[in-house]
Design a protein around this nucleic acid. Sequence first.
DNA 1: ACCTCATCTGACTTTGTTTGACTTTTACTT
DNA 2: AAGTAAAAGTCAAACAAAGTCAGATGAGGT
Lengths: 157, 157
Amino acid sequence: MPSLADLIEQYIKKLIQESEDRVVEIQRNELAEKLRCVPSQINYVLATRFTLEHGYLIESRRGGGGYIRIIKIADQDREAFYQRIFGAIGDAVSESKAREIIKALYEAGSITEREKRLLTIAVDRKVLQVPLPYRDELRALLLKSMLAGVLNAEEGN
Amino acid sequence: MPSLADLIEQYIKKLIQESEDRVVEIQRNELAEKLRCVPSQINYVLATRFTLEHGYLIESRRGGGGYIRIIKIADQDREAFYQRIFGAIGDAVSESKAREIIKALYEAGSITEREKRLLTIAVDRKVLQVPLPYRDELRALLLKSMLAGVLNAEEGN
DNA sequence: ACCTCATCTGACTTTGTTTGACTTTTACTT
DNA sequence: AAGTAAAAGTCAAACAAAGTCAGATGAGGT
């Protein structure tokens, strides 16, 4: 039973995949109507799942002929992509944010499904049994270390 | 007279058996209603009978569209294999011992090289920055959890 | 009867989603 | 230039889950 937000997310991602240039332009009201939700629900989804950290840019325009344009960032090279990922993790990261990052990596084809699962578990609060201010820091360090090890190993040897 | 907790346990196990992939997804409130108990009773059962040591992984999500997913990590055949590894790890494990176990799994072909690298980093004392009696416990839980998640994926999907 | 441990409950918390009323911006019309 | 309608944006409140925890209750062992 995926939530409405999940459905909207999937729908938009499908549109982007089908697009030639990773850019998709929608009309908020029209999309809301098609997916049977209130228009502001679209904003919620964009705000929670299509942020810069997730690798997307949003441009929009109001008024007659208005639109929302969703752009999937094309990272120049792996470096830029990883830069963005590591920046998003920072010195401390919540479980949900970590999960989103891992998901993005998987969707970008940087890690396998098994690796995704491994990482997702490593980031679980039930596993990282440390009191809270430190847990997020430990999670950040752990995730960054693991990613650093596995990602830049690709090109080398 | 089986206790309520026993009934819930049996019910969930039946669901898993009937499932194709040893994974079952429930809604806590719905299940609580069906089994005539308070929702938190479900948590109690999960916490006492579906732990990692029992061979299960739990994932969940709150809010609208929330769920609890229960994953049985091994079928009968693999059970012994897990018990051996989990036994070797125990409740606390040193970095060197953890490395040995990871290496053995790699040599046995259970994990890929990248996975080996991920696991090895996760188990590094420079990454697990926690004072020492706890560090070995954290490492044990982390390693067992990660292995449970990734080894589980071997056969199917 | 008493003790201990497992079970059960309910109040409260946290997280995530959905909705609708209201605001702002823009293009078009007059 | 002013007015109007057509977008999209904002925000707080309502709703919908699951999580936590401490205390009550119960069952088996001595």
